[in-house]
Amino acid sequence: MAKYKVTMLKMGTLNGEKSNMTMGRNFGITTEIPMFSVAVEGNGHKIILDTGIKSLEWARVNLGEMYVIEQEEDETMEGALAHIGWKPEDVDIVINTHLHYDHCGSNHLFKNAKFYVQRAEWEAAFNPVENQQCFYFEELFGWSAVRYTSWKFLDGEAEILPGIKLIPFGGHSVGSQGVFIDTEDGVVCFAADTIGVLENLYENCLPNIMTNVEDGFKTFEIVRNNADFVIPGHDPVMKKYQTTDFPKVDKIR
């Protein structure tokens, strides 16, 4: 079985309302919300999970006052890839956990990649429910960013390579998916925003950007049943370029 190497790439930091990450908790506190992509290498493939925001300038123009965003030089997608010795054209697979602007913003950089997303997420992205309209920007995932013939639309669970499995994750958006990766240490799950911070999983506390809460709790169970380690999408405990010692999945609950 192929084993993959997993490296955290930090895509900048949002400063925003902490209760967005935890339903019913931490109201009125502004906190640092780092954004993470993940580089996965092995079995002859270079894979990127999520692509961060498009640029600081894009965020200023399009997000307005919603968040204050900071981004160090090696926290742009190009900067982070250069740091680990990759070029965008080397990447042959991009997996979007979902199509919110901070998870597909740099899709346009990857000219040689196939892009994996759940079809339900793609469909919802063009006509989002009102409370999610502020997260979807067609210019980031539409024809001007990614050629339609480069998309691979999924209808449910799929093992896209030996040791890389995608499983639909309900709760945070209509068609989110989690990425399960075989590594030397065990199975690592990149949960992105369905487990934005470890507190979600460890305390069974949903994130607060939600579609259906029942689906959100089911997602926690899927992670507990299928992974040894979890990478949350926005938790400050995760370190830039971290490659080992990922947080353990809490199996107790």
Binding site: F126, G142, W143, S144, R147, Y148
Partner: peptide, 14 residues
């Protein structure tokens, strides 16, 4: 559906 198809073409092509 004819109007909708125009939109589907716009989504997919340059």
């Amino acid at each position: 559906s004819s109007i909708r198809s125009l939109e589907e073409i716009r989504r997919r092509s340059e």
